[in-house]
Design a protein around this nucleic acid. Sequence first.
DNA 1: TGACAAAGTTGGAACGTTCCAATTATTAAC
DNA 2: GTTAATAATTGGAACGTTCCAACTTTGTCA
Lengths: 348, 348
Amino acid sequence: MGKGRVTVIDIAKAAGVSKSTVSLVLQASPLVNESTRTKVNAVMRELGYVYNRGAANLRQANARSKIIGIVVNDLTNSFFAELAVGVDTVVQSAGFVQFLSNTSESIDRQREVIASMREHGVSGLIISPARGTEAVDLKPLVMAGIPVVLVVRNIPGAKVSSLVSDNHAGTFAAVEHLAALGHSRIAFVGGFPDTAVFDERLGGYRDAMSKTSTGFQEELVVSSAPSRAGGVDALVRAMAMPEPPTAAVCFNDAVAFGVCDGLRARRIEPGKDFAVVGFDDVIEAKTTVPALTTISVDPQGIGQRAAQMLLKQINAGKPEAESAVSSVRLIVRESCGAAMNKPGRKMA
Amino acid sequence: MGKGRVTVIDIAKAAGVSKSTVSLVLQASPLVNESTRTKVNAVMRELGYVYNRGAANLRQANARSKIIGIVVNDLTNSFFAELAVGVDTVVQSAGFVQFLSNTSESIDRQREVIASMREHGVSGLIISPARGTEAVDLKPLVMAGIPVVLVVRNIPGAKVSSLVSDNHAGTFAAVEHLAALGHSRIAFVGGFPDTAVFDERLGGYRDAMSKTSTGFQEELVVSSAPSRAGGVDALVRAMAMPEPPTAAVCFNDAVAFGVCDGLRARRIEPGKDFAVVGFDDVIEAKTTVPALTTISVDPQGIGQRAAQMLLKQINAGKPEAESAVSSVRLIVRESCGAAMNKPGRKMA
DNA sequence: TGACAAAGTTGGAACGTTCCAATTATTAAC
DNA sequence: GTTAATAATTGGAACGTTCCAACTTTGTCA
């Protein structure tokens, strides 16, 4: 036992049929008689047969393997972990298996990982590209006809599908909400200016501010690293202005948490003396104190939808590139000061 | 272009050598002349050759594929995301690629996932088993001689390697620290009582409490779901006691965060009026306010070590089961009230 | 010059599966 | 009772690679 692998031929011998018949049973063909099918299945269980997918998709050069690859740029960020979970659920129920790798924002690592996945014959790829990825990096994939769906970050010029969240609409809604609450000096805080996501979120902020009485003012844009520490840092600079803001639309939730930390350090209570809105709706947003008002992008939902787009492309013969925008919505909680009548929190 | 796959034979024709020579180049054999090697490599680049691992490890039935599988029970928990990152780093540098799947604590899903990985010919498996997994579930793997390393949760009776953290020592140290700070009513909060991990952590707590003047008291053990919401819930029950605790050793960091939320909801400041200690040292522990005192188990480190154990087993012919315990250490931050002289936070 | 070794190279068989065309067994129709 | 149609089964070739044993070329030594 455990010596040579049990093959389809062993099963055939033991069941007294040919290997072709066993093969037909394996793929649940209607051609095979019910009694033979049950007998073959019994023998397979008895001998502990394990299907060899490598051999199988060696033969069927057309239909690729049942693997889909997913590469993310930062698995330690819970946003991407949840995205991966979303992908996994739909991919698994379609009989595929997921191949996950983490690039840690390294382009080199990303190249290696993608090459490795090609060697294993993935049917398709879901990629959240590392910073600095260019269209040319994806060229070999589209040339080989491997379906690709980009998520979170789009790459201009790449002829592949993409699914990004509606960044413009998100920050636009955030500004509108804060303006309706009576704020006029609203800052845009955090994020690196050289990314597409930043441009889009800033654009929504700018367009919404232009419609207010005070209009858009460049000085209210304070960039920083898109992290908690970056948020603290940016807030310090924002409050040093001659006329400091009374509210902030943040690049993402991590920055928003940092802004709250910074506010408390100056004895300003977020949600009471100063309004904060985040972006992403990470899982901690609803349980933190004060609960964070934020733009919900539903990472699991994005993962599921991306997986569906990919499966559609895989099933269609020709990979037809398709661009989708995932809608977002404003989740009003406590940090913007709107929910003043919540029990257990007294407001001025 | 993009029609039929480029094979080793195409390369051979184009380079004017035999397929055998190309194969030798692929495996960097010293037998082949330097000039042929460079020529073959050039042709491969030119034609866009992609190695077909499926075909390769079909032939070499002995040496399995370069895939290692990792299955976790809850990828949305950042502990496991980081563990996966740790595994990925060492596995990648050994030329392997990682196959990650999430079971969401479902035994059925786990069975499917493991079967799928076997079909793809994984060389080894790192498993954080779903709740309720039994030794018999792993039997087929050990029978087939596939190396397995269990992490986080051990399974009694399974003849496979395991790497768990020193749960007993962790909670023991936490209690000792709190007792040294003057606390005597110290609760053990959170976790499901029917798991091995719970037993071990509770054991450390009990043994340490027995050494204090007040001794171990059953009523101070308040179990709950091992999540943030569970922590909130457990705290409510703990504070309803006639003589409520003044400190809590929590089952994990998620529970600890929930306890802090619950305390603030009753206007009790964690780290000032009440001491909280977590377990795991997830990445948010050091940035949250107040920074969480916790038992560090270094998830990335565990992932790396587990991967090394697995690679060792893969390289050795015979998979020799080996049990290891990963040491833990107490990280003192703010939530236990020990760091009273931190700037920016005034304490009573 | 011949024998021998070392260095490179090579054709064919094998791995475990699927596909195809061909075969046999069964039933239906006249 | 022959033919036709249908149902079920089958052997062999093919997929892209690696391994093995055999081969050619070149160099070395007596």
